[in-house]
Design a protein around this nucleic acid. Structure first.
Length: 491
RNA sequence: CGGGAUGUAGCGCAGUCCGGUAGCGUACGUCGUUCGGGACGACGGGGUCGCAGGUUCAAAUCCUGUCAUCCCGACCA
């Protein structure tokens, strides 16, 4: 099955490593687990970026950019935060190289040691809040609603392609507010933006909820998340939005004068999604023929493959196809007419399936004669012949259908994979044989969650916002519970 | 950082036990026939066998070291 993201899995080199993206490792270097995103893979990321950026701007946010390097001292200012990130930081200690006096190559110049080490950002809360300090004096300066598109580095012990790479691309929103309520609203608003993006663009259904204390972001008072389910039954945290309270404002001494002229600490949020979403996209929809991309994120939405024996035939076909291409473009549909004769039609069919192109049109002599075109859809791998006249309208509708159909398929799968469980035996049984989300009562304590994790590797993915009010008893401890939470094995 | 595996042509691999100077599939190039689901034939180009030492007349193969990757843990977004 083409669902594992492992290099040894059957189809990896065929459709994943070679075509979409490659975790490329510099030889003999300490650059481990970083990823190279090839042009086609990057085009998908660009589509995601564009859609998200639009949504951020529609909710009043602006983009900004902050430094890659963060002075070490900034990190020690928020205790929980440093605890969370200290173990996975890349540290810059020198600023110069020189020729090795004893021979070949270059060495780090020992005379060029930095007074204070610089940390390559694992996340930008600290550098941004030290900057915000200078931007904020009065309630009139608030709110600040900034987002940055950037790369960050987390020196993970073990990396997993897309899901946990040492360097990754992401966006991080950092907002500052005058009131607690406004910050809470912002936190909630952004998790909703993420959920909308996941469901409407990626066609990946997600559960919105709050993290348990154990799983919370380092330095946050509350973490909201969206959790998606992959085809192998494992959960993937796909986006988070944090209510930071006044923790960072206190740490960086960011105060403002309120309407009464009194000094108060600023309220903060941060939120982010990363190239991990590409992993989610791939693992949620792909099949053994390769990628299945939702039309809204497909760099190429329609590919047209002519079938011909000679140039004369091609010319006749092209004349008809060019009209369609123009019509599709006029509708804002990205279309590629692959008329080159260096590959055969069969090869092209397989190739574009591998790349997840949602709709393929094939036009050959037979179609020219009958005024028809063959339309194939990637998600169902079905083909039908339709009239060439008006195919643009047909395709436009089809793209919408595919978008919806991919989502419905994923949603049905997820619904099937949420299992209600009331005993520990049942819990273990479902984890082992079925996977997916397990909806169960939990007593709300760290200790219970920790023990369940140790014994089964399952963690609480979230406490869903829309859970039913239902009292019960914790399946593990037998203590009273206020409602069900979702457990799962996660990536 | 522990346990296991791997490193040989762009990619996927065989060859290693038992040392004799590197091969298969695919991709690539030329020509011809093909072209409605990854075409076929003929010829051809491409490899410091991860790296560094050692043993030997001779090392992809044996020995030592080292680097890197993958999988399983621990850790984490």
């Amino acid at each position: 099955m083409a669902k594992e993201l492992t290099s040894r899995s059957e189809n990896y080199s065929q459709w994943y490593n070679d075509l979409v993206v490659k975790a490329d490792l510099a030889e003999n270097s300490a650059v481990r687990g970083c990823m190279v995103i090839k042009p086609y893979g990057y085009a998908i990321w660009e589509k995601m970026q564009a859609a998200l950026d639009r949504m951020f701007k529609d909710t009043g946010h602006v983009n900004a950019y902050f430094p890659l390097f963060i002075p070490k001292s900034f990190f020690s200012k928020e205790a929980a935060h440093v605890d969370g990130f200290a173990k996975e930081c890349a540290v810059v200690t020198h600023y110069r190289l020189k020729n090795d006096p004893d021979g070949k190559g270059v060495i780090v110049d020992p005379d060029a040691k930095l007074e204070e080490e610089l940390i390559v950002r694992p996340t930008s809360e600290t550098i941004i809040w030290s900057t915000y300090k200078n931007w904020i004096q009065s309630y009139r300066d608030l709110p600040i609603l900034c987002n940055q598109w950037a790369n960050v580095v987390r020196w993970e012990m073990r990396t997993r392609l897309f899901l946990r790479t040492a360097e990754f691309l992401w966006q991080e929103g950092h907002t500052a507010h005058a009131t607690k309520q406004e910050a809470l609203d912002e936190t909630m608003q952004m998790i909703n933006v993420y959920a909308d993006f996941a469901e409407k663009f990626m066609a990946v259904p997600v559960v919105k909820g709050a993290k348990s204390e154990n799983e919370r972001f380092a330095g946050a008072l509350d973490t909201y998340c969206i959790e998606a389910l992959m085809q192998d039954g494992k959960a993937l945290q796909s986006g988070t939005s944090h209510f930071l309270g006044q923790n960072f404002a206190r740490a960086f001494d960011v105060k403002f004068a309120n309407k009464e002229g009194k000094e108060e600490y600023v309220w903060a949020t941060s939120w982010g999604v990363s190239t991990r979403l590409m992993g989610a996209l791939i693992m949620a929809h792909s099949d053994d023929n390769g990628l299945v991309l939702p039309p809204k994120l497909a760099p190429i939405q329609v590919v047209i493959v002519p079938i011909y024996k000679n140039e004369e035939q091609l010319n006749v076909i092209s004349e008809k196809v060019n009209v369609i291409v123009e019509k599709l473009k006029a509708k804002g549909i990205s279309v590629k007419y692959d008329y080159l004769d260096n590959k055969k039609p069969g090869w092209k069919f397989a190739e574009y399936e591998l790349k997840g192109v949602p709709v393929r049109l094939a036009v050959g002599p037979r179609d020219i004669e009958n005024g028809t075109v063959e339309v194939a859809r990637r998600d169902t791998l079905t083909k039908e012949v339709t009239s060439l006249e008006g195919v643009d309208v047909y395709v436009e509708q089809l793209l919408n259908d595919i978008q919806e159909s991919i989502f419905t398929k994923a949603l049905n799968f997820r619904t099937e994979m949420i299992t209600k469980v009331d005993s520990y035996d049942e819990f273990k049984e479902v984890l082992k044989n079925k996977g997916g989300f397990i909806s169960a009562h939990w007593d709300g304590t760290k200790e219970t969650e920790q023990k369940i994790k140790e014994e089964t590797k399952a963690t609480i993915r979230c406490i869903p916002f829309d859970r039913e009010e239902e009292t019960g008893t914790c399946f593990y401890s037998g203590k009273p519970s206020q409602g069900r939470v979702l457990f799962a094995i996660a990536y």
